[in-house]
């Protein structure tokens, strides 16, 4: 995975493995105001989803995974999804 700090969002790119959780955590701590963009994300590991769930950031877009779109994003619906 690549984490890109675009200035307006923390963007997840490609498949997100378990090891990316640590990198995302660092980014979240570094940019406490930015939303997380899933527009360019592929499969996302549970460790990363757990962080997205607990950080309570606003979310942007949808990842490529149909399962995530249909079942996981609705569980985060209290979050602002742009």
């Amino acid at each position: 995975m690549t984490i890109v700090l675009s200035g307006s969002a923390i963007e997840l790119h490609g498949a997100c493995g378990v090891e990316d959780a640590e990198e995302l955590l660092t980014a979240l701590e570094a940019k406490p105001q930015l939303p997380v963009s899933l527009v360019h994300a592929g499969d996302i590991h549970t460790a990363v989803w757990q962080l997205i769930l607990l950080c309570e950031r606003d979310l942007e877009g949808e990842p490529a995974s149909d399962f995530a779109v249909r079942y996981l994003l609705p569980t985060l619906k209290n979050r602002k999804v742009k």
């Binding site: 378990v18 959780a21 640590e22 995302l24 955590l25 549970t46 460790a47 989803w49 757990q50 962080l51 769930l53 607990l54 249909r70 079942y71 996981l72 569980t75």
Partner: peptide
């Protein structure tokens, strides 16, 4: 045949404890 799914934290993270991204808490 998933009809409904929900995911939530087993324990809410404690503010004073550093978050461990490699421990599953779901």
């Amino acid at each position: 045949g998933i009809a409904y799914l929900r995911v939530f934290a087993r324990n809410m993270p404690e503010p004073e404890t550093p978050y461990d991204p490699f421990r599953c808490n779901l």
